[in-house]
Design a protein around this nucleic acid. Structure first.
Length: 295
DNA sequence: AAGAACTCCTGTTGGC
DNA sequence: TGCCAACAGGAGTTCT
């Protein structure tokens, strides 16, 4: 379940093996992931040099010479395994195979880079996707055109939340999950941010704003806590719950710091609160919250 | 047109 | 132990 902190961690892990390197060989084992891969995908990548790596929402952007960008979304279970021939990923060959061999059938793409690194994209559920987009048309691309603001950027403010929430009947959970409003949040960090802000996930989004669209205090808390929880998670290398791993195979540490997500029945961690963590379903997804201190 | 429901996919988990 | 339903969920598509 890679969300922004996990995607950012993977991006940072790929940077040293991709940046400045060329795609020497591209092995494409399937015609499609979630969507069909681009026409002549391997051919168009081969020989291209990576100029830099970026991120937009939950997409890793690999900028290439000659003006194209390889945009990659990890979906639910997408991950990269970095290895070098004969080195086997910094662990013994046995460790590498026992770790990775069992689901090698889900290795869909294998990139061999100049410098010798082999980067394998593995995705059991194939909710991930990749596409090649002309750099100058990135913002107009169908995947990117409708995306909302970056939560860690200056554009996410209480005023922005209030403006977008004005008149919205959806609950706060759905509002924050909507990539057209804020790009990069998913179930885990929406639950965590609402907990930290002390807000009920079932409350209508419109309550973030006054009748004239000005932010109320809870909008201030929410904007601040979204940024705080994402920054904390990036610092910890993301959360590893089921499938996510960093590019070097290590797991994240933030799952140990989650306040509500996955803690159904546990006691509320807020000092002085006697509540316990509950779970309910919103929009077909589990929401974890404390009914006592989230109002 | 907003908002809810449905869909894709497969490994893991829990109940019997 | 085996079998099977339920579950995980990002986000595009389809519906109401």
């Amino acid at each position: 379940m890679p969300e922004l902190p996990e995607v950012e961690t993977v991006r940072a892990g790929l940077e040293p093996v991709l940046r400045g390197r060329c795609f020497v060989r591209v092995e494409q084992r399937r015609r499609d992931l979630r969507f069909p891969l681009p026409e002549r995908f391997a051919e168009r990548l081969t020989g291209r040099r990576v100029t830099r790596l970026g991120r937009r929402a939950k997409y890793i952007l690999v900028h290439l010479d000659r003006g194209e960008v390889l945009a990659m979304h990890l979906g639910m279970t997408g991950r990269f395994i970095v290895s070098k021939p004969g080195v086997a990923d910094g662990c013994t060959l046995g460790e590498f195979e026992s770790e990775h061999g069992k689901d090698a059938k889900h290795d869909h793409l294998v990139f061999t880079m100049s410098g010798g690194a082999v980067v394998t994209y593995n995705d059991a559920r194939r909710f991930g996707y990749m596409t090649l987009i002309p750099e100058r048309a990135l913002e107009q691309d169908a995947f990117f055109a409708g995306l909302g603001v970056e939560p860690l950027g200056d554009e996410l403010t209480a005023a922005y939340l209030a403006k977008r929430a004005l008149g919205k009947k959806v609950d706060l959970k759905a509002f924050l999950m909507d990539q057209r409003i804020i790009a990069g949040l998913g179930n885990i960090y929406v639950c965590e941010a609402l907990f930290r802000a002390g807000l009920d996930p079932g409350k209508p989004a419109a309550r973030l704003a006054t009748k004239t669209g000005k932010p109320v205090p809870s909008a201030e808390r929410l904007a601040a806590q979204i940024k705080a929880v994402l920054a904390d998670a990036i610092r910890a290398g993301g959360s590893t719950l089921r499938d996510y791993k960093q590019a070097d195979g290590s797991i994240g540490r933030f799952q140990n710091e989650l306040s509500v997500y996955g803690r159904e029945g546990g006691s509320c961690v807020k000092p002085g609160c006697r509540g316990s963590v509950r779970r309910k379903t919103q929009g077909g997804r589990s929401t974890f919250y404390c009914a006592v201190c989230q109002r």
